[in-house]
Amino acid sequence: MDPLGSYKSIISARATDKRILKRCQDGGIVSAVFIYGLENNILDGVIVADKEEGFRPVPKVATTPEEVLEAAGTKYTVSPNLSVLKSAIREYACEKVGVVGTPCQILSLRKALKYPVGFRHMVDKVKLLVGIFCMENFPYMGMRIIVEELCGVRIEDVVKMDIGKGKFWVYTRWGEVKSVKLKKTHPYEQSSCHVCTDYTAELADISTGSVGSPDGWSTVIIRNERGEEIINKMIEEGYLERRPIDEGKFGLGLLKKLALVKKEKNMKEIEHRKELGLPVPPDVCH
C-alpha cells in the first residue's frame, strides 16, 4: 500500500489572500479552503481550533471568514474538534459543514459517518473533511513544558509554533525565534499517538501539511472528487496558486519517508503492546 493512502493527485499550493498568509501556518490551505467554501455557499459552517489565553485550544464552529482567520495556525496540542460537531448541526443549524482535523480525528469522523449511532441527521450535512499531517501531538502541559522550559519562552509571548527541520520552533511577539531539537520533545508526546499509523489523514477529502513543499507553501493531497472539485475551482478563480510538487528527496520523497517511518515505528509499538496484553486501536473504516 502507498504510505500516503489512496489519492488522485498531489500538488504544492498556497493561498493568495494576504490576510490568510499573515495568520496561517504554512500555505494557508485550510483557511483558504474554508473561507472559499463559506463565501461561495459550498460550506455554511466549519469546525476549527481557535485558541484562548495561554495558547489553549478551543474547538469552534466558525460561520464567517473572520472567524476562520482568527483560528488559523497550528496548535501543537490536542484540540477535540469533533466535540462541537453536534452543535454545528443543532443550535448553529449548519447544513454544509467543513471539518479540519488531525488524521485520528478524520478517522473518527469517518467512523461516525459510517455508523452515526449518536448523530441524528448528521451524515448528509458533513460536506468536507480536511486533514492535516501529523506525526505526534502533545498534551497541553507537555506543550507548555516545551515552550516554557525547553525554549525558555513565556507562553503569553508566543505568536506561533512550528515543527520543521528536526526542530520545534517558537516565535515570540518580540520577534525572537527559539527552538529545541525534536529529540528533546519526545518525552512530552501523548502516548496514544504512538499507536497511530496515519501520517497524512488518509481518509480525508483533502490532506495538507508542510512536509514536501518549500517554506510558506503547503503540500496538498487531493484524495477524491469532492476534494478535487474545490481545489480546482480555487485555482481557477485565483484563490490558490499552485506549483508542481517536488518529486525528489526533499519533496514527495520526504513525505513518503516520514509517512512510512510513522507506520513502521508505531506498528512496532502496537505489536509490543499486544505482547504486553494491552489493547490496541482497531482497524476502522479501512
Binding site: 496540542t77 490536542v78 477535540p80 466535540s83 449511532v117 501531538n137
Partner: peptide, 28 residues
C-alpha cells in the same frame, strides 16, 4: 477502556455523541 489504556487521543467524538451531554472535554 480508552483513557486508562493510553488509547485516547482526544478527538472529542464521544462528547458530541452523548445524548445527555454528559461528557465534557477537559485537557483533551
Amino acid at each position: 477502556n480508552v483513557v486508562n489504556k493510553s488509547l485516547c487521543m482526544g478527538c472529542g467524538i464521544c462528547s458530541a455523541s452523548c445524548p445527555t451531554r454528559a461528557i465534557e472535554m477537559v485537557d483533551g
